[in-house]
Design a protein around this nucleic acid. Structure first.
Lengths: 167, 167
DNA sequence: GAAAATATGTCAACATGACTGACGTAATTT
DNA sequence: AAATTACGTCAGTCATGTTGACATATTTTC
């Protein structure tokens, strides 16, 4: 791999970050997310799980007793997509479901001890990366990262996400 | 890890953000990325393109004359996956390829005018979201977002990504 | 000049995770 | 009793990723 950058000026003019300053953050979001999910992916592969299993396991672990409908709203996928992944997690003994005590139509979701252990390992991997990244940001600017990410979320979703994260 | 999540549905205590402060950023990255790609997805669907086409189009637009190998390194996908998407972009007239002038084994990639127009519209959509998010961050903390995201990228990749973004 | 390495393309076969749309069942609410 | 809700399921499709092997042209190295 020599030089990723072209020196051919004969083609369509490109938009350098000088012209569109937001390009830097657009591309950083891509690269950051690419690497952010890479450690979990590697661990999950050992269990024959993928990114979808990670998301389900994470949110069930964080919110025991979560309903299927809640999970669908969080993940923005269809019932059918969730159903498959959830079934695999239940069959493999990482997630458990019980009828709701008040409304017995509901299937409330819980992680098992095995599931909790894996969820914690995944959180630990990503926490380490987050801590390392924050360590390189001057303390007075650290809040900027969180504020920026909250602003990227759809306006209509922001309050709901905030509630979910805080609880 | 002192906390153990029990199987008991009545025990809702898990790992709250209070115990693992990085959880907030872990979850914000998920939600922010989920919404960040949502507008492009909607526009691309009109052309029967997906997220993979977006990424190829974006980086070819930003770096005219990019080689296939460079793109593989940026996107971290296999030649076969890229090949399919690239072929569709070329057939649809959004991307053009020419043999390298020095090394004729290379197929240097360029966007056509049509491709550039679409790439610019996609950048514009995401720029708008970025600008809105930054507007809500106090100016003295804005740099924190960029610094944090750079820190999330794999240490070994950071210099290469920085060069790619700046050029 | 021959051999090796490189850049790219291509084939077959497959896995994952997403989709739509329709329908079923049990439980709760009106 | 009827309507609504929560959830599951069936059947089919699509997009995007994977591995591994092999082909071709070209450039580099000995």
């Amino acid at each position: 791999m020599t030089d990723v950058i072209s020196n051919d000026p004969t083609d369509t003019a490109t938009l350098p970050p000088g012209d569109v300053p937001e390009l830097v953050l657009i591309e950083l979001l891509f690269f950051a997310y690419r690497d952010f999910v890479s450690d979990p992916d590697a661990l999950l592969a050992q269990y024959d799980f993928g990114r979808a299993h990670h998301r389900v396991l994470h949110f069930v672990s964080r919110h025991p007793g979560l309903r299927v409908a809640d999970l669908l709203d969080i993940l923005r996928i269809t019932k059918q997509s969730l159903g498959r992944v959830l079934k695999q997690l239940i069959d493999a003994g990482f997630v458990d479901q019980r009828p709701g005590p008040k409304d017995r139509r509901q299937r409330l979701l819980y992680v098992t001890e095995t599931g909790a252990a894996l969820a914690h390992r995944l959180i630990e991997m990503q926490s380490r990366r987050i801590r390392a990244a924050l360590a390189a940001v001057p303390p007075e600017r650290r809040a900027g990262a969180e504020e920026f990410l909250r602003g990227i979320i759809d306006g209509g979703e922001r309050a709901k996400v905030a509630r979910l994260i805080e609880s």
